[in-house]
């Protein structure tokens, strides 16, 4: 059996397949389907300083080969997470990436400080890219200077690797990546969802109560892949690639584009076993090609005809 274990930002992962924040709750629901130790890591649903109520319904709309969501980062807050969810997750041999959210830099820093009091957290993923809340989130993720400020502030109080999750809703993703790298990011997650909408033609109004939502699923994969490719050429920190990964072939594309690790997101909703199946598929792919996993990361760049 080939070894898929990797080191990412100083963390050792049993394999490079994670599950994306917001698509896996805090692990409980999918632990009814499989042993969570089978996946390399869990990026938990966004955690804020105080509980957040989230948006009214409808929060979801299906689109062709995709879906829009506007959950609004509903979560029970960091205290609840530390008391009820972290102990549950720590039962498993998988790495725990805590996705943090805030409406201000102070709130991001506040959550990070609360997390510092706990053991068993492997990394902090900063959500500066949620398109569904008016304050915070995307406001930090669409401007390089603001993004860098959040990363630097969290980095200053975190003893753990800090991984900003970038928004694809920007003109120049490479510029964003360079900004957060300079601010001290240990790795970069990309992409979050694409801002979109759907309209109910019978009622003549937006489907989502929030009007706009984040598009995810297979529909976004080519764009996400292109962004991973561009960021790989722009920065030297490792990339966690995501966006429409449904099966191992999609994950392999992200790896070849430059992602050292990948995250399965929306696929969890439709195929609960998607993430462990991606692990199995990548393992077989590595065996079949005979190329060590780490050499596959970004391997398509040297083959590309950029002229």
């Amino acid at each position: 059996m080939s070894d898929l274990a990797i080191e990412l930002a100083g963390i050792r992962l049993n394999n490079p397949v994670l599950v994306a924040s917001g698509t896996f709750g805090y692990g409980r629901e999918y632990s009814e389907f499989y042993d969570l130790s089978l996946i390399g890591g869990i990026m938990v649903k966004g955690v804020s300083l105080e509980p957040w109520r989230g948006n009214p319904v409808p929060r979801i709309a299906e689109t062709h080969a995709g879906m829009l969501n506007a959950i609004g980062l509903q979560n029970p807050g960091v205290d609840h997470f530390l008391k009820h969810d972290l102990p549950f997750l720590r039962q498993y041999d998988t790495r725990i990436f805590v996705n943090i959210i805030g409406r201000s830099i102070e709130e991001y820093v506040g959550v990070t400080q609360r997390l510092e009091e706990a053991e068993g957290i492997d990394a902090i993923e900063i959500n500066i890219s949620c398109p569904n809340i008016k304050e915070g989130g995307i406001q930090f993720g669409s401007d390089p200077r603001s993004a860098a400020e959040v990363v630097a502030a969290v980095k200053a109080v975190s003893s753990r690797p800090v991984i900003p999750k970038l928004s694809p809703n920007v003109t120049d993703i490479a510029e964003m990546a360079r900004a957060v790298e300079e601010a001290g990011a240990d790795a970069i997650s990309l992409v979050n969802t694409f801002l979109g909408m759907a309209i109910d033609i019978h009622r003549r109004r937006p489907v989502l109560a929030n009007t706009f939502g984040g598009l995810s699923g297979p529909a976004i994969k080519p764009i996400a892949l292109r962004m991973v490719w561009q960021v790989y050429e722009a920065v030297s920190v490792p990339i966690i690639g995501m966006g429409g990964i449904m099966q191992w072939q999609d994950a392999a594309e992200f790896v070849l584009a430059g992602a050292k690790a990948v995250a399965v997101g929306t696929a969890n909703f439709t195929q609960p076993y998607a993430a462990p199946e991606v692990v199995r598929g990548l393992q077989a792919y590595v065996e079949q090609t005979g190329i060590p996993y780490e050499q596959l990361v970004g391997a398509a760049h040297s083959q590309a005809d950029n002229g």
Binding site: T23, E29, R59, T270
Partner: peptide
């Protein structure tokens, strides 16, 4: 009845 994403409790789409 509410619009659902995952059906298992992970996505928080179908809340009331």
């Amino acid at each position: 009845e509410e619009w659902m994403g995952c059906g298992v409790g992970a996505c928080l789409s179908c809340v009331v």
